[in-house]
């Protein structure tokens, strides 16, 4: 079963700090990681490959340093990796991103299964997976929390989370799935794979390499624009309760009693 896993390199939100004056992110010292939900997509891909053979190709679009996310994926056991990196890809919204991924996947060769994470923890639109499937004309099943291959891998039986519970969905390949964090526990890198990952040649493809039309990628291929940004304002009666912990708690209870809440 040939599988493409789409991953994204994101800033580790645990290490992100903010510049309060400017209301922006302090980029120095922020570590980059594989978007955590994508690790579950990768694990799902690796275990299906282990079961049915074939290969797992990891694909990402990003700046040159996104290569390190691909090396991490190789050290977890992915067979091949492709980096889409080109200034022309910059500032892509989800429409331009799905087009770019489509062109790359066509160049790799269409697999039987494409796996993505449920969402990226930075942009958090959850749009790229379903959008990519629409471009391929494939079914997509989002928020997958269980995968069982049936009929020798020709079909998948999927547990798919909805707002109040779950549904079991049967899908014939090829399909695209977005993988939920409860799907599996990602493996740890093996020493052998780590060594191989270190030495691996990772191809870097530009928009010309994948035959992408310049007006459909990056900023020119993106219908959505950030028009303006502002700092949120809240009008609240603000009171900081002072004193020892005990006095603070007493003051709070007094006020909640006055409001009839206790």
């Amino acid at each position: 079963m040939d599988i493409v896993v789409c991953i994204k390199q994101v800033p580790d939100t645990a290490t992100v700090r903010f510049d309060k004056e400017k209301g922006t992110i302090i980029r120095e010292g922020v570590q980059s990681i594989i978007n955590p939900p994508d690790l579950h997509a990768l694990e799902a891909g690796l275990s299906l490959r282990d079961q049915f053979g074939g290969k797992v190709t990891v694909l990402t679009m990003g700046p040159p340093q996104a290569e390190s996310a691909l090396r991490d994926a190789l050290s977890l056991g992915a067979d091949e990796a492709v980096l889409l990196s080109d200034r022309a890809f910059a500032a892509a919204d989800t429409l331009a991103t799905t087009y770019t991924l489509l062109k790359a996947i066509q160049k790799i060769g269409l697999p039987e299964l494409i796996l993505c994470g449920t969402h990226a923890i930075d942009g958090d639109t959850a749009q790229v997976g379903p959008g990519l499937a629409a471009r391929l004309g494939w079914p997509s099943i989002t928020q997958v929390a269980g995968i069982e291959a049936v009929e020798d891998g020709a079909k998948l039986l999927l547990k798919r989370l909805i707002d109040q519970g779950y549904e079991m969905v049967e899908a014939e390949l090829p399909v695209l799935l977005t993988c939920h964090k409860t799907l599996n526990t990602p493996r740890v890198p093996s020493l052998k794979a780590k060594m191989r990952a270190k030495k691996a040649q990772i191809p870097v493809w530009s928009h010309e390499d994948i035959g992408a039309e310049p007006d459909k990628i990056g900023i020119s291929g993106s219908p959505t624009w950030v028009d303006s940004t502002f700092v949120p304002a809240f009008e609240a009666k603000k009171e900081m309760l002072q004193g020892s912990p005990e006095e603070q708690v007493d003051a709070l209870i007094k006020r909640l009693k006055e409001s009839g809440l206790i």
């Binding site: 209301g23 303006s228 949120p232």
Partner: peptide, 9 residues
């Protein structure tokens, strides 16, 4: 992203 700003898109 980052959550400290609100954007109009």
């Amino acid at each position: 992203f980052g959550g400290n700003l609100i954007a109009t898109i």
